[in-house]
Design a protein around this nucleic acid. Sequence first.
DNA 1: CGAACATCCTAACGGGCGTTAGTTAGCAAG
DNA 2: CTTGCTAACTAACGCCCGTTAGGATGTTCG
Lengths: 194, 194
Amino acid sequence: MDGLQSSPRRAQINQVAEQLFSRKGYHATTMREIARALAIEGGSLYSHIASKQVLLFELVLACAEEFRRTAQAVIAEGGSARDQLRRFMRQHVAVIAASIDRAAVYFHEWRHLDTGQQAVIRQQRDEYDEFLRAILRSGIASGEFAAMDEKLVSLQILSQLNWSYQWYRPEGPLNSEDLAEAFFEIVMRGLEPR
Amino acid sequence: MDGLQSSPRRAQINQVAEQLFSRKGYHATTMREIARALAIEGGSLYSHIASKQVLLFELVLACAEEFRRTAQAVIAEGGSARDQLRRFMRQHVAVIAASIDRAAVYFHEWRHLDTGQQAVIRQQRDEYDEFLRAILRSGIASGEFAAMDEKLVSLQILSQLNWSYQWYRPEGPLNSEDLAEAFFEIVMRGLEPR
DNA sequence: CGAACATCCTAACGGGCGTTAGTTAGCAAG
DNA sequence: CTTGCTAACTAACGCCCGTTAGGATGTTCG
């Protein structure tokens, strides 16, 4: 929740909004509900936020930046393509696991942003995707991964990582590192040259 | 769209609702919008449907039944576990590809159903998941697949299949059979015993 | 102490929604 | 021609929403 925590009350608003947006959807969540969860009145929220829409945008943006930050760190740290892929997947699952609600808002509620805001998010997503593709390409070039359609494989990997917010629960029996590792194993077996 | 097409107008309503629910979300779609897309008035929709909620429920249910029907056919047809898995994945992608909008509503908008309706859908989903798990188990038993946590692997497979509605476009360069085949190849390589 | 500021309350604005009930118009059948 | 039915229109109900502007309250600082 970096960069969003300008005050304790603002942090609370973000937290509650994230939960409610995730569970009920952006449009089905009212400002009065968010306020009620904080034991204040709906009109009071506007002391802290510009609008409902801006609130959503900032939540989505914060998550996008978290994904980017972690991917950048993976790339910056270098290592073999296999290692980078493992770390990339680990980080990805970790971001989701840190807050399932945030992930849900990021993956789905962003669609309710206006056109300009959506374009910003789309660009961030594309940049993030490009990190993975770069890893796959370098693995192919180094011979660590079999030749493949790296665009499609990156979509496949991201698909399984992204959808996990729908069923994975960090408080369950499986910790996020083991989950990522399990995913990585199968993916890696599929990618290894033969 | 089986079982839902009681009249031409009803079919149109379903089609438009599906599109709008998919693109804007259930709550952000108004009955007046659905009506407007059909060049009638909002109040007129109630000659054909009981309520907005029931409309959503029936759309989601129709898709759930389509998934189930195709999975049942795969199992009924038998064959090796490998073949069944391939066909299962093919059918899954085919159902999504048949209507991305329907898939989006099924995978996400179902959350806006009431508690009782959700329970119905959840049960259908669980039954569907069980089809895949049964295939994986039989593959393990027959030695076609390596031993594994079949629950987790089924979630992994379903994750990549399910998320595809977010990026796959049937009118694009890749047809749904080739997509399913590409997914199957990597999955299978990961599942094969070593 | 008084002023400034932050935060909250509150009433209300302007607008909108899902749905209902009564009416109307067109069509088909007797 | 008359009657019955279907499907649409329409006005309105009952309720709700995001947001604003003015006021009230508590805290901090000079």
